[in-house]
């Protein structure tokens, strides 16, 4: 059983050609989570604009975006069942914004190539929802007030997660990872990684964790009392460059480990070209 809302391709292109500024271009639609007593999940894929996901006190997922008009494909409206005919399965769909609900998971997909993107999307979900967001060409990504598990992946933009109180697993290729946790779910592993950006994480003062930190061209800063574990000795490498001159390079093996408040689940911080900052709240 599945609910589906599709924003059709034709309309999407039209909207791209005539961007509607202001309130006129702003659309809102609501998707129910089938069973409020069961764990909820929100999955968002694609999109080229900025994306904000916010926990709130309600029960539904409220999706708000600019530049699109909602229409059911073949006249199907929001909330209508869109089951494939008996004995058939779907092999294609109109490119656009595709929102489905199945087994308490709301999926928002805007992977389309031509205008199949919703700009500046804001999605509100009950705070106790697990969130899984992945964009390839997106701008900044913001996730606020979520107490479920958060998985966030962005390519170019910054990932900002504030007032989280569950667990966070976040990656950005080129952007910064900025995370602040009000509370840490016990026994949850977390991981923060970026290739070119800084990692800036704020944790409650009493967090128990084992940090695994790695940065190749940056530094690590913290105001936590980290008990460092013995790390691998620096490696001295001798090599010859193209002209035959020998070169020497000292490399401290990337990963450093240490515990706070006696240790706990693992938290990994990995960046190649950025700094790692771990603040005490």
């Amino acid at each position: 059983m599945m609910k589906r809302i599709v924003v059709g391709m034709g309309l999407a292109v039209l909207a791209a050609a005539q961007p509607q500024p202001g309130a006129e271009g702003r659309q809102q639609l609501t998707m129910h989570f089938r069973d409020p007593s069961m764990p909820r999940k929100l999955v968002v894929e694609g999109g080229t604009g900025s994306l904000t996901i916010r926990g709130y006190q309600g029960q539904d997922a409220i999706i708000e975006y600019t530049g699109r008009e909602i229409s059911g494909a073949n006249g199907r409206g929001p909330g209508r069942r869109n089951e494939p005919p008996a004995g058939m399965h779907r092999i294609g769909e109109s490119r656009g914004l595709d929102i489905t609900e199945e087994d308490n998971t709301v999926r928002v997909n805007s992977q389309g190539i031509f205008g199949g993107t919703a700009r500046d999307m804001v999605i509100q979900v009950p705070a106790q929802t697990s969130v899984n967001v992945k964009t390839m060409f997106g701008g900044s990504m913001t996730i606020e007030n979520i107490s479920g598990d958060i998985e966030a992946e962005n390519f170019n933009g910054q990932v900002t997660i504030t007032n989280a109180s569950g667990s966070v697993v976040a990656h950005s290729m080129n952007g910064k990872i900025l995370v602040s946790l009000d509370r840490v779910a016990p026994d949850k592993s977390m991981s923060f990684s970026t290739f070119n950006g800084d990692i800036d994480v704020t944790l409650p003062a009493d967090t128990k964790a084992r940090f695994k930190m790695r940065t190749d061209f940056g530094e690590i800063y913290t105001d936590f009392d980290v008990k460092m574990e013995a790390n691998a000795a620096p490696v001295v490498e001798e090599s010859k460059d193209k002209s035959g001159k020998s070169r020497r390079r000292v490399r401290v093996d990337g990963t450093q480990t240490g515990t706070i408040n006696g240790g706990g689940p693992e938290m990994q911080f990995t960046t190649f070209n950025g700094r790692i900052l771990i603040h005490k709240k």
Binding site: E151, V169, K188, S189, S191, E266
Partner: peptide, 11 residues
Amino acid sequence: QSASDRLRGVS
């Protein structure tokens, strides 16, 4: 299903 759990499995 959750990445946090899979990370725990890896540890």
